[in-house]
C-alpha cells in the first residue's frame, strides 16, 4: 500500500526575475521506500530534500521522471500521503480539537469517531487540557504537536515529515522521536522523514539516504539494522555511533570546498 518508488526524478525551477535563468534542484533522483518502512533523508541545506517531499505529496510535479506511491502515479495531493510541515500548519480559526478532527470530518468520517480520535491523539501529544484552545494561545512547540496529531489522526498509508521536530526543544524532541516509533508500531505507516539531525535520522530510520549538495542526487544509501521497538539507549552503542560517524562524514564531504567557503579574514598585517 505505502510503497514509494522515485525514478529518475529531476526538478528545475525558473529562478524568478529573468525567465531564461533556471535552478536545478534535483538531478535524477532514484529511491525506493518499502511498505511500512521508515526512511530518513539527510543532506546539506538547499539540496532539494523538501522539493522531493513536496513532489511526493503531490504539491508540485517533477520536471522529468516519475513518482509512484503504492503503484499509482502521484498526480495530486491526497490523504493517503499526509504531510507534517516544518512549521505548524494549523487553521487559526479552529480550536486544537477542531484542527485535529478537521481532516476526518471533511472526508465524512462519523462525528463520534472524529471526536474520539481527536481526544486520543491529543492525549498522545500531551495536549489533553488544550482541546478548546486556539493556536494563537499555544507555544510554538505545542502548535507543532497539534499539527503532528492532526496528521496522525488520518492514519495515512504514508507519512511525509519535513523536519517536523526542528522547532521543538531538546527534551520534547527526544520524547517525540520515541513517540513516533510507538505510533509506527500502532498502524505501521510508511514514513519518509527529512532531518538535519544525524542522530535523529539514525535513531528513527530503517534505512537512510544521504543527498549531495544542489543539484541534489542520492549520494549513498545506508541501512540501519536495529530492531524496533527502539529505545534511546541505543544511541551510545558502538554500532550506532559508527553509522552516525559514517553519515556525518558523507555530509561533510558535501560542504563547499574550503577555497569557496566563506572564512573569517585574518588580521591585516600592519
Amino acid at each position: 500500500m505505502g510503497k514509494i518508488v522515485v525514478r529518475d526524478v529531476s526538478k528545475t525551477f525558473a529562478s524568478g526575475g529573468r525567465q531564461d535563468t533556471t535552478v536545478q534542484a534535483l538531478d535524477k533522483v532514484n529511491l525506493e521506500i518499502g511498505d511500512q518502512e521508515i526512511v530518513c533523508l539527510v543532506g546539506p541545506s538547499g539540496c532539494g530534500k523538501s522539493t522531493l517531499l513536496n513532489m511526493l505529496a503531490g504539491f508540485e510535479a517533477p520536471t522529468t521522471g516519475d513518482i509512484r506511491v503504492g503503484d499509482v502515479e502521484v498526480r495530486d495531493a491526497g490523504p493517503d500521503r499526509i504531510v507534517v510541515f516544518q512549521t505548524p500548519a494549523l487553521f487559526p480559526w479552529m480550536t486544537v480539537r477542531d484542527n485535529i478532527a478537521f481532516g476526518p470530518r471533511k472526508r465524512g468520517v462519523p462525528e463520534r469517531r472524529c471526536v474520539e480520535d481527536a481526544v486520543r491523539y491529543m492525549h498522545a501529544m500531551e495536549l489533553d487540557d488544550f482541546g478548546g484552545h486556539y493556536p494563537y494561545q499555544l507555544s510554538g512547540g505545542m502548535r507543532q504537536r497539534v499539527q503532528i496529531a492532526s496528521a496522525l489522526v488520518n492514519r495515512p498509508d504514508v507519512l511525509l515529515m519535513d523536519e517536523p521536530f526542528v522547532a521543538l526543544d531538546f527534551q520534547t524532541r527526544l520524547g517525540m522521536q520515541e513517540l513516533l516509533l510507538q505510533i509506527w508500531d500502532e498502524f505501521h505507516p510508511t514514513i519518509l522523514f527529512i532531518t538535519h539531525d544525524v542522530e535523529e535520522a539514525v535513531f528513527l530510520a530503517d534505512r537512510l539516504y544521504v543527498m549531495t549538495r544542489r543539484p541534489g542526487r542520492i549520494k549513498e544509501e545506508i541501512a540501519v539494522p536495529f530492531a524496533k521497538p527502539r529505545t534511546f539507549g541505543i544511541v551510545t552503542t558502538p554500532s550506532f555511533v559508527a553509522i552516525k560517524e559514517r553519515v556525518l562524514h558523507l555530509i561533510r564531504e558535501e560542504l563547499a570546498p574550503a577555497g569557496r567557503r566563506g572564512s573569517i579574514p585574518g588580521r591585516i598585517p600592519s
Binding site: 505529496a57 504539491f59 495531493a77 491526497g78 499526509i82 504531510v83 487553521f91 478537521f102 471533511k106 472526508r107
Partner: peptide
C-alpha cells in the same frame, strides 16, 4: 499557501477548500 496545501493534503474537494479554508482565512 501552506493552509491551501494542508487542505488539499487532507483530501478536501475544491468546494470544501473554498468554504472551509480560503473563506475563513
Amino acid at each position: 499557501e501552506q493552509l491551501i496545501r494542508k487542505g488539499r493534503n487532507l483530501g478536501l474537494t475544491r468546494r470544501q477548500l473554498f468554504t472551509s479554508v480560503m473563506l475563513p482565512a
